[in-house]
Computed example of a mutant assay.
Amino acid sequence: MTDIGGCLRDVAGLLVTAVAETVAGLEISPEDRAVVKLAAAYAEQIDDADPAERADVLEKLGPRLLAALDALGATPKARAAAKGGGARAGGGKLAAIRAAR
């Protein structure tokens, strides 16, 4: 548990924890450390946002956090692109519909 804004919160439920766990599983080169810190900062700002403003903060910083994780290769889209595929390896139903056109 951690104290954020006077409220105890389970650390396991925080974005900053999830980002740290995700990054720990990556091979990060020294030149990518700034992106790691940026992702952690975005996650921390989202976690620390006032509950009344959390939706707005998430709307503003969520895409930025996702872009940082994407740049690190830490999203399904980034992993698929690294393998030479699309956003989903199988493509799913939408890809099948598009291919049928």
Rank of each mutant, 00 (worst) to 15 (best):
P63V: 08
I46Y: 08
K37Q: 14
A24G: 14
R101M: 13
A74S: 00
A34D: 15
A41H: 09
R79Q: 12
E59A: 15
R101Y: 09
D56G: 12
K77H: 12
I97D: 15
E31M: 09
L14I: 01
E27D: 15
R98W: 02
K37Y: 13
L58T: 14
R101E: 11
E53W: 10
A78S: 06
K77A: 11
D10N: 10
P30N: 10
A34L: 03
E31I: 09
A81D: 03
K83N: 14
G86D: 11
V23Y: 01
P30Q: 10
K77M: 06
D56M: 10
L38S: 08
E31Y: 13
A55W: 07
V23F: 04
D10R: 07
L65T: 04
P63R: 08
G90C: 08
A99R: 08
Y42C: 11
A68D: 04
A80I: 05
D32S: 08
A96P: 06
A89T: 03
K60T: 11
R101F: 11
V35M: 07
G91K: 01
G5L: 06
L65Y: 03
K37G: 14
L94Q: 11
K77T: 08
A100L: 11
G86C: 10
L14D: 00
T22Q: 07
A18F: 02
L66C: 11
R54A: 08
D3I: 13
L8C: 13
R64W: 08
V35H: 00
A20C: 09
E53Y: 12
E59G: 14
A55K: 14
G25V: 02
L72E: 01
C7P: 05
P76C: 04
D10I: 08
A99C: 03
L15Q: 09
M1S: 13
K93T: 15
D56P: 00
I28F: 05
A100F: 07
D10H: 07
I46G: 07
D70H: 12
A49L: 01
A82W: 05
I4F: 12
L8A: 15
A99Y: 00
V36H: 01
T22W: 02
T2K: 11
V57F: 03
C7Q: 13
I4C: 11
G13N: 12
I97N: 08
D3A: 09
E27S: 15
R33D: 06
V57I: 08
L61Q: 06
M1T: 14
L69M: 02
G91H: 00
A71F: 00
E44M: 15
A41E: 12
A71H: 01
G6E: 07
A49G: 02
V11G: 08
L14R: 05
A82T: 03
A20G: 10
D32H: 13
